[in-house]
């Protein structure tokens, strides 16, 4: 993996008819797409009992300096000897010093990632996948809804938009977690609450001593907040069950499917559209996604 280039998808054979391969002009790794760049962990942040944030720097300074990605793109992070897993790069592209990944412990690779400390070596194959179509959102209000580790992809796109506030209307965030202890980026949240450009609401599932914010499940809190769907894009990320009920809430509020954006998760291996396991019908989450509008998802076979 060396410097990045932008490449047009599928020049060789015609694009499929019902293409949802949006964002086909995307930053992509060049060279052998299976070969990771070796990187060094420079910082590990304990977010919650289950989530750690890693900051990594690519060892080749030239590659690090040229590294370019769009908000929402992911990386395959590897612990050599254990394997690879997919995580969104959640630091904003303007931040050039390191790449940040927030990892929830789930199975083998994520457990090994949680054992890493400063100075350890990892592999990074990035940037992969499509990204949030933020250029198309200019002039609109944006309403972010994040649950659990879903706050990671929202963090990067939200910080990216906040840097370009003049181009957007009102930006809001509803972030929910099971309890205050399950909230990642707690050290940043105070800043988000006081940021005049951001309307930030926090919620937890059940009452908790000293909690000054909302209590309730995300879809219900959302229905109470009742954001105006006019000229508004809703962006939601979180566990499948939260996505399911939040989509219903958004539709109830009058959001159109083309104005609802989400990211999908599927088991992945190659991350480059070949190994064949992350498909929904003829689409592959790793290259056609992970970012989709609800309208695009509705056109696909219902196999989530």
């Amino acid at each position: 993996m060396a410097t990045k280039k932008t490449k047009n998808a599928r020049a060789a054979e015609p694009l499929p008819k019902n293409a949802v391969r949006n964002c086909s002009d995307r930053p992509m790794p060049s060279g052998n797409p299976y070969k990771p760049a070796v990187a060094t962990v420079t910082e590990v942040i304990h977010e919650t009992a289950a989530i750690k944030t890693l900051r990594v720097v690519l060892d080749d300074p030239a590659v690090m300096a040229a590294f370019h990605y769009e908000p929402g793109q992911v990386g395959q992070l590897s612990v050599f000897g254990v394997g690879e897993s997919t995580f969104v790069i959640n630091s904003p592209p303007s931040q050039k010093k390191y790449l940040q990944f927030s990892v929830m412990q789930a199975g083998e690779v994520t457990a090994a990632i949680h054992r890493l400390t400063t100075g350890d070596k990892v592999g990074v194959r990035a940037p992969l996948g499509n990204f949030f179509p933020w250029r198309d959102w200019r002039g609109k209000n944006i309403f972010f809804v994040g649950g659990g580790i879903g706050i990671a992809p929202l963090r990067v796109i939200m910080l990216h938009l906040l840097e370009r506030m003049a181009d957007y209307g009102k930006i809001s965030l509803l972030y929910g977690a099971r309890s205050p202890r399950d909230m990642a980026y707690s050290y940043e949240i105070e800043g988000w609450l006081h940021n005049h450009d951001l309307d930030c609401t926090l919620c937890i599932d059940a009452p908790f001593e000293g909690w000054r914010h909302k209590v309730g499940l995300i879809p219900n809190v959302l229905l109470n907040l009742a954001p105006d769907p006019t000229n508004c894009i809703a962006v939601l990320c979180g566990p499948p069950i939260m996505i399911k009920f939040t989509l219903q809430a958004l539709e109830k509020l009058g959001f159109l499917p083309e104005n609802i954006v989400t990211t999908l998760e599927k088991r992945m291996k190659c991350g480059i559209g070949i190994c064949g396991r992350c498909n929904i019908g003829g689409r592959y989450i790793c290259i056609d996604g992970p970012v989709f509008t609800l309208k695009q998802l509705q056109a696909l076979p219902q196999e989530l």
Binding site: R10, E13, N32, P33, Y34, I272, G273, I274, I287
Partner: peptide
């Protein structure tokens, strides 16, 4: 050949 050579990422192996 199609997925391995003509896709978004050609497979070098």
């Amino acid at each position: 050949d199609r997925p391995f050579l003509n896709g978004l990422f050609p497979d070098p192996y």
